[in-house]
Amino acid sequence: MGVTDAIESAGAYTPRYRIDADAFAEAWGTFDAPGVQRKAVPGADEDAVTMAVEAAKTALDGSAHDREGLAGLAFASTTPPVDEGDVAATVAEILGLDNTVETAAFTQSTGAGGSAIRWGTEVPDGPTLVVAADAPLGDPDDALDHAAGAGAVAFLLAEDGPVEIRETATYTEEFPGTRFRERGADAVDSYDATAYERDAYGTVVAGAVDALDEAPPAIAPTAPNGKRPYRAARRLDGDADVYETAGDLGDTGAAGPLFGLAAAWADGEDDVALVAFGDGASAVAVRVVGTLDASWDRETVDVSYAEYARKRGHVVETGGDD
């Protein structure tokens, strides 16, 4: 492992707004996101960058390191505000990190958070913020949009900390047509063959977990909905507990497995494999031992489907002043 293979502090953020599955059912006559009871909805002035900043500030507040002392910043998201451009630099500038900080943006995969953690432990020569922030968007009548949530989680990696990153393992196998987003498109898409998608997820998640030297008692996998992680867990050796937050926050994309890990900690688990799965497909399993507090409690406000559709830009022509 690298020089910064401990998590010193953590921070989590969710937007203020929530919508219930019932509000979708009322609007569409159906709700197509299994296991999602309610989910977080970003405000129109929020995106992966602004949510990342919120989570990162909380993680920094909980750290003994000050921001000038950070050597690295990794940003992970499937929804960066631009297709090209170093959005990690924007996050670093907003946080006021030193200009010597090394940045990296991990995107194009809901597994990006796992890659960012691996980079954070191996590459920068000192304390590193790893922040995964996401707000996936689908076509309004698609199950992917019914599941789409929002949120961010940040970990501050350092030499020492209450959580030890003990081991990582990977698994890669191509499953074309599982969740993807075409170049230039805002909405994620998929070939939509459920059994095939489940097989891709189950094979790759189990492949990464099985590649760990030691079977973890709990897993926190990427959660495209509130059901798939549990189904996949049945393929694992042993009887691992499963943690996900899709039931309550929706699909938080690249931030999903980090939210799952925080939920596992909140439940008293201290030996967990975070499994960052990205369709296509590949997964990074990161076994961490120890616990930290990363709460995302805040006052929330329920919105109607109409308000949801406006905030997400589904029913309005957006794109700025041009």
């Binding site: 405000g43 129109a44 002035d45 929020e46 995106d47 602004t50 900043v53 631009v82 907003i94 794109g319 700025g320 002043d321 041009d322």
Partner: peptide, 9 residues
């Protein structure tokens, strides 16, 4: 910190 606006992309 939030998105204030978007202009010229």
């Amino acid at each position: 910190v939030r998105r204030i606006y978007e202009q010229e992309g």
